[in-house]
Simulated assay, not measured.
Amino acid sequence: MTGTPFSVTTRTTGTGAVVTVAGELDVATTPRFRAGIDALALRAGQLLVVDLGGVTFCDSSGISALIAAHNVAEAAGAGVALAAVPDRLGRTFGLIGLGDFFPTYPSAEAAFGD
């Protein structure tokens, strides 16, 4: 597939972290996504928000990486939420039984209640 170049950026906030993903989240790019998650220093009570607004494609390895991010946050005692989930990916979550697994918000700011 071709399209938006893959990027993953992280920023910390006083109450957690935002990981913004753009491009194709697939078998070739999930190692970079996971490395970004693993580099975070989440603490109990914080929130990890994964902003998917720029994701153009997500395969099963991308979905597995999102579940892994959930597990990393949970192990730290932090919460996790998804922001700006593309409609197609949201439908996929529903079809595979993950529709209620991740809290979702229209933006990272909304996830933090800003």
Rank of each mutant, 00 (worst) to 15 (best):
Thr2Ala: 13
Gly3Lys: 08
Gly3Cys: 11
Thr4Ile: 11
Pro5Met: 04
Pro5Val: 06
Phe6Ala: 06
Phe6Cys: 11
Ser7Gln: 14
Ser7Pro: 07
Val8Leu: 05
Val8Ile: 09
Arg11Leu: 14
Thr12Ala: 11
Thr13Val: 14
Gly14Ala: 07
Gly14Arg: 03
Thr15Glu: 02
Ala17Leu: 00
Val19Ser: 03
Thr20Pro: 00
Val21Gly: 04
Val21Tyr: 02
Val21Ala: 03
Val21Lys: 00
Val21Thr: 04
Ala22Thr: 08
Gly23Phe: 06
Glu24Val: 04
Leu25Pro: 00
Asp26Trp: 04
Ala28Leu: 12
Thr29Asn: 03
Thr30Lys: 01
Pro31His: 07
Pro31Ile: 05
Arg32Gly: 11
Phe33Glu: 05
Gly36Pro: 02
Ile37Asn: 00
Asp38Phe: 06
Asp38Pro: 00
Ala39Trp: 11
Ala39Ile: 10
Leu40Trp: 12
Leu40Asn: 15
Ala41Trp: 00
Ala41Asp: 14
Leu42Trp: 12
Arg43Tyr: 07
Gly45Phe: 04
Gln46His: 10
Leu48Gln: 04
Leu48Lys: 02
Val50Gln: 00
Gly54Met: 11
Gly54Ser: 09
Thr56His: 07
Thr56Leu: 12
Asp59Lys: 11
Ser60Gly: 12
Ser60Glu: 13
Ser61His: 03
Ser61Thr: 07
Ile63Ser: 03
Ile63Cys: 01
Ser64Thr: 15
Leu66Ile: 10
Leu66Asp: 07
Ala68Val: 04
Ala68Cys: 04
Ala69Ser: 05
Val72Ala: 15
Ala75Asp: 12
Ala75Met: 06
Ala75Gln: 05
Ala76Met: 05
Gly77Asp: 09
Gly77Ile: 07
Ala78Cys: 02
Ala78Leu: 02
Val80Trp: 04
Leu82Lys: 00
Ala84Met: 02
Pro86Lys: 04
Arg88Ser: 13
Arg88Pro: 01
Arg88Cys: 09
Arg91Cys: 06
Arg91Met: 09
Thr92Arg: 08
Phe93His: 12
Gly94Asn: 11
Gly94Gln: 12
Ile96Ser: 07
Gly97Phe: 05
Gly99Lys: 06
Phe101Met: 13
Pro103Ala: 01
Pro103Asp: 03
Tyr105Thr: 11
Ser107Thr: 15
Glu109Phe: 09
Glu109Gln: 13
Gly113Ile: 13
